[in-house]
Design a protein around this nucleic acid. Sequence first.
RNA 1: CGGGGCGUGGCGCAGUCCGGUAGCGCAUCUGCUUUGGGAGCAGAGGGUCGUGGGUUCAAAUCCCGCCGCCCCGACCA
Length: 490
Amino acid sequence: MAKNITTRAADYSQWYVDVVREAKLADYAPVKGCMVIRPNGYAIWEAIQQQLDRMFKDTGHVNAYFPLLIPQSFLEKEAEHVKGFALECAVVTHSGLERVEGEARLRPKGKLEEAYVIRPTSETVIWAMYKNWIQSYRDLPLLINQWANVYRWELRTRLFLRTAEFLWQEGHTAHATAEEAREETLRMLGVYRTFAEEYMAMPVIVGEKSEGQKFPGAVSTYAIEAMMQDRKALQAGTSHFLGQNFARAFDVTFQNEKNELDYVWATSWGVSTRLVGALVMIHADDDGMVIPPRLAQRPIYAVPIYRSAAEREQVIGALRRLLDDLRLQHNLRSVLDERDTATPGFKFAEGELFGYPLRLELGPRDLAANQVIATLRHNREKVKLPLPQAAAEVPRLLERIQTDLFARAKKDMDEHTREINSYDEFKEFIAADGGFALVHWAGTPEDEKRIQQETKATLRVIPLDGAVEKGTCILTGRESNRRVVFAKAY
RNA sequence: CGGGGCGUGGCGCAGUCCGGUAGCGCAUCUGCUUUGGGAGCAGAGGGUCGUGGGUUCAAAUCCCGCCGCCCCGACCA
């Protein structure tokens, strides 16, 4: 058992915090509600960025960068948007500091004519620019993504899952027709799904948000929802069809092919550093982090075992040759832990804590047998690889790990997703942290609130690929023709 | 914003009730022995006790103010 990590069974929330801190993914910052993303955590975010960025480029998007500060008046332009974000904006009101006479203290100096808010999201500043950039249908579509930080003055925070400042990407696109914009919304939702499943090894339910849960200012919001190991849902990515709401608010019009003036159609979509928290909650265990191979900057952790200086030289030499082959032939990077100040046992434990998907051990006995021992992080399986074949076998092992992780998480989600047909059964299921409840639903936003108050569960998504079937709403008894997902959520 | 808890070497805590030389564990450093699942022994370094004021011969300890953080709720990616 890992030192300093509370077990999941004992206290899931504490386990999560312990893993994040012990694996050195993040640390609390000396700033309220904020965290420091440490190198181990940032490496994962970089891997997420690199892959998603490739996928955005492959679907025709380009990157740009907009200002951190947004004039307060911009926020006022879209009514729903204001309501959604006003309370959680950090506001910049002064332009400098001055010393308080006779004291060491500083205080704000020049009050600004108009306050700025630190972006909680960038729709407003981006659409203020789009107004200048779009005149004709020939300027469309405009497919821009931004990698940035945003700030939301959260009252309760949790490392990675909810912090005041977080890193994300926000795509903001403009289109000539509603159909095109809707297509884009669903295309990017699909990109998120593919990324979640194929790279994070995280199965998701893809669907639409209810009226009460959609993004402030959106016509419709779509999301991918994943199930964590404690059976709670985590929204892992959202894609919004914004209709013409922002175009109207910022007066962004264009002339179409028929020489008519029309408002531009918009989408926005984003994922954040929350995904790092999702990885922890879905794959990590009581011994620490587990990184899916495709998101590990260095998927291989090599531990040399030796007593004498001569042994050390031989063992490290053999490992170096293998690791070089892996890098040159398979583009796989690794860590060779040459520290003389830590014992192999310590390195094993630390390698597991940090979540390297595959560990290679090589000692004098292995050298004599011309083999290397590969240990899989997620299930502790040990495989003896003949040295001559090791470079070819390791990539296959990594692929197998990636597949296993997804299969394991999928099985877990499927086993805890149930069709539920009465409100009593529903209450019992949710109270027992049963997971995702598939229920017939025909309620209003007020009914949703009632369910949340009575059970703490919320309507996560209306699945896009759900079958059409007749049924009756578990709460209102009204007729329904599809099931939706209710669950407790982060 | 409501409720609760806590601020003492890097981390976790004891000491506070009942004022009297600031302690323990882990971590760190040095040396020797170790090294195939978180090594052992010996020694060493490191603290304005969150902060400002008050009481007192004397304050981590008592009194008043302020600040910060964590947890639980409502709000949210």
